[in-house]
């Protein structure tokens, strides 16, 4: 399914408590995004809801476990399930993260259960390009790769994450999913917290046509001295909205998603966040200014 991109497309993350809303409320967003792995079952009510939702909305499949940056190969069973879901849903966007998830423990393959950071080196870039090529070839689709919130860094990294993703995109044809909150979280935890500057530094490295989706989310404020956790548990912060303005100025009408995963609000509050994104993007796009 293709979606015309004349106007900005605004979507929301669809989670279980909103299943009834998405099927019964008037259509107020352009697309919804779901976590692929939540629909890896062979059948049942959740998959049925997804199929019904697909009749009303374009769907973005966002995977969280593939671990494209893993040194281990992504297991066939995982890819088989993802391919099956992809063929069933025919998503208009398909994304994953620039992270690793697979490893070995006592000779057994294990999954990290989280998005773990990768080294940003030429060697890890080579590895991830191979994984992305393999998955894109298997699925017959272009992937969109997201920058992550990281809570530690590897001393061996000699590329910035932005440069890493730009090179990955250039070499594989995959696009970039720009998560502005993740840049903000990393800025607060590791870069002194000048979020506007961190975002400006990040996006100027990314080629204008490389960004195919934007994620907006909120993070709870931590106790003093503790790291900010990317918990998607509150509204988008003012600083992230300001970063979004910068991103739209640079990349134009890129499909944008409001992510809210914990302490879920009502559907109407979620839609209000989406409306806010649309109004902000349209005001920037109306000025017609690109950086």
């Amino acid at each position: 399914m293709s979606v015309k991109n004349n106007n900005i497309l605004i979507g929301v993350g669809l989670r279980h408590p909103h299943f009834t809303d998405v099927l019964t409320q008037p259509k107020q967003v352009d697309f919804v995004e779901v976590h692929s792995e939540n629909f890896f079952g062979e059948g049942g009510a959740a998959l049925s809801v997804l199929k019904q939702t697909r009749e009303r909305y374009p769907i973005s499949l966002h995977s969280t476990s593939m671990g494209l940056g893993s040194r281990e190969e992504i297991p066939q069973d995982y890819l088989y399930r993802l391919k099956k879901l992809t063929q069933m849903i025919d998503p208009f966007l398909m994304s994953e993260h620039a992270c690793f998830t697979w490893g070995q423990q006592q000779g057994q393959l294990i999954h990290s259960g989280d998005l773990l950071p990768i080294e940003h080196t030429h060697a890890s870039l080579d590895r991830m390009c191979m994984q992305v090529d393999r998955v894109q070839s298997l699925l017959g689709r272009e992937l969109i790769i997201e920058n992550v919130s990281a809570y530690l860094h590897f001393a061996q990294s000699h590329l910035s994450e932005a440069a890493f993703l730009a090179a990955l995109s250039q070499r594989t044809g995959a696009k970039i999913l720009l998560d502005i909150n993740n840049i903000a979280v990393n800025s607060l935890n590791f870069e002194g917290g000048d979020i506007a500057q961190s975002i400006a530094n990040y996006i100027k490295v990314l080629p204008i046509d490389s960004v195919a989706q934007i994620h907006l989310a909120g993070s709870s404020l931590p106790a003093t001295g503790e790291f900010v956790i990317d918990d998607h548990a509150c509204p988008v912060s003012d600083q992230v909205w300001q970063g979004y303005e910068q991103a739209i100025q640079r990349f134009g009408a890129v499909p944008t998603l409001i992510e809210w995963d914990n302490d879920l609000p009502t559907w109407s509050i979620l839609i209000a966040e989406a409306d806010k994104a649309r109004a902000l993007a349209n005001s920037i796009l109306a000025k017609g200014e690109r950086q």
């Binding site: 792995e37 079952g41 476990s65 297991p75 995982y78 399930r81 998830t101 294990i110 999954h111």
Partner: peptide
């Protein structure tokens, strides 16, 4: 028994 499938549901 650490997870090994990438899908917590399994």
């Amino acid at each position: 028994c650490p997870p090994s499938q990438g899908d917590w549901g399994q």
